[in-house]
Design a protein around this nucleic acid. Structure first.
Lengths: 113, 113
DNA sequence: GGCATGTTCAACCTTTCGGTTGAGCTTCCC
DNA sequence: GGGAAGCTCAACCGAAAGGTTGAACATGCC
């Protein structure tokens, strides 16, 4: 089913969702904390998280009344393989990646760590 | 500008457009020929091609009355770099890629060549 | 028990998306 | 010149995306 790639790419097409993924790259987060930096209702963020979860890009686990969100990078593998077929891209380049996070998403890349 | 990633990922989110890219991987094609395998009007394909062109994923060059479409794989670089930051993916795996083309897109991968 | 906290659900609204059809514009060919 | 071929444009349509608000529903705490 091409649904998998559909939902993954569609999920990645939104800058809010990409920013959320970038945040989760640093650490697991509660929904409320995910929502905090965004100028948007909690319900809207909850929807974004559902879309990311449906695409398999994150998982959500409820512990007590807090729902923790966790990045699931494996879901990107299929999409990444698909893309690499077109361009013979370089290997992982974390410098380029961090520059991207800052420039494209406005999310400060974690340079400590 | 995160617009770049927006348009690239949004363009990739549609299975018809991914199939078109896969076709163009084999060779440059005229618009009419691109449209041929799809059960869809020529105008619809023309729109898809515009979206791909706006994302920088293809270019179109008019020669005579025929408009030739050409894959522009460089546009995927930014998106690929972004994605690789999340998963430490393997290098290019063309076998996996070809399996994807067939399974996900229904477009026979070009095993001659 | 009762209230605050954390999150989702449901209904709604507006904009975008993916498709259609029909008209229009070039370009090639006789 | 005139017709066919090769697109694109414009108007339209239904469905999905992305947001809002208000209610609902667990859970933790006093």
């Amino acid at each position: 089913m091409s649904d998998d790639l559909d939902t993954v790419f569609a999920a990645l097409a939104d800058p809010t969702r990409r920013a959320i993924l970038a945040m989760l790259l640093e650490d697991d987060m509660a929904v409320t904390d995910v929502a905090e930096p965004f100028d948007m209702s909690l319900a809207a963020i909850s929807k974004h998280l559902s879309i990311l979860a449906r695409a398999g890009l994150i998982s959500r686990e409820r512990r007590g009344r807090v729902t923790w969100c966790k990045l699931e990078p494996d879901a990107l593998r299929a999409a990444s393989v698909w893309m690499q077929g077109f361009g013979q891209f370089d290997r992982l380049d974390f410098d380029a990646f961090e520059r991207f996070l800052e420039r494209e998403l406005g999310v400060p890349a974690n340079d400590a760590e």
